[in-house]
Every structure is written in structure tokens, then in C-alpha cells.
């Protein structure tokens, strides 16, 4: 192998090792940024359920600032809906599964972020 290529291979190996040792949580994008990218198209930039797409949707997206409703949903329900879609918790197919887009730790962070939008916890507003 050419010495230059050896150097490349060495650096490549180091980089891959570095990435492999990183915990998933460190690679996660902040929940606020993920919300703006994936959720806001339907749930709105403010999380109020009034996204740019809603006019022709047959089922309207949840208002994430609605503490009364959001406190009736457990963190596990929110995690499942986010990862596997609305159908997984007997809700609308219009809520898609994000499990191939976001990691589990990103979805856990999203659940925590949703709790800041509704100013609520499961069982109490």
C-alpha cells in the first residue's frame, strides 16, 4: 500500500473507532430542532396543532400546548406514537412513525420536550 494511502486508512480507522465509541445520546439532535424539522409541518411551529399542512387533513393534529389532553397521555404512549405512529396507540394514520428517522434517545428527548410545551406531566397539569 502507498504510504499516503496507509495514512488515510489509519485516520479513517481512528475516525470510525471514535464514532463507534460515542454514546448515541451525544449524536442526538436537540429535541427543539427535531420538532422544528419533523413535527412542525403538522403540529405547527408553536406546537399549537396549527401546522402549515392542516387545511386538507381529515384528522387535525394534536395541540401539544393543551395541558388538559397531554396530561392524559403517559410518556410511554407519547414515545410509542412518535416511534411507531398514531395507529400504534389507536390514533390517526396521519401521525406517521418516526422510528426510522429518530433514534430512541432522540424520541425520549422529544417526549421530555413535549412536556415542556404542555407544561404538564402524566396525570397532572
Amino acid at each position: 500500500m502507498h504510504p499516503v494511502h496507509k495514512t488515510y486508512a489509519f485516520i479513517l480507522g481512528l475516525a470510525v473507532l471514535f464514532l463507534a465509541l460515542l454514546p448515541d445520546a451525544l449524536l442526538a439532535a436537540p429535541a427543539k430542532d427535531n420538532y422544528r424539522t419533523y413535527c412542525a409541518q403538522c403540529h405547527g411551529l408553536q406546537g399549537n396543532g396549527r401546522g402549515v399542512n392542516i387545511r386538507d387533513m381529515s384528522v387535525q393534529p394534536r395541540n401539544h400546548t393543551d395541558g388538559a389532553y397531554m396530561s392524559s397521555r403517559s410518556d410511554q404512549d407519547l414515545f410509542t406514537a412518535d416511534k411507531k405512529g398514531g395507529l400504534a396507540i389507536d390514533k390517526s394514520v396521519l401521525m406517521p412513525p418516526w422510528g426510522e428517522t429518530l433514534s430512541d434517545s432522540e424520541i425520549h428527548n422529544m417526549v421530555r420536550y413535549l412536556r415542556t410545551l404542555c407544561h404538564c406531566q402524566y396525570g397532572k397539569q
Binding site: 424539522t37 412542525a40 405547527g44 411551529l45 396549527r50 401546522g51 387545511r55
Partner: peptide, 11 residues
């Protein structure tokens, strides 16, 4: 998201 503004009924 870079091209939205709040509206009375929706973004």
C-alpha cells in the same frame, strides 16, 4: 420551516 409565518388559523 424557513418560509412560514403565523396565520389566524394555521402557519
Amino acid at each position: 420551516a424557513d418560509h412560514l409565518k403565523p396565520g389566524p388559523k394555521r402557519d
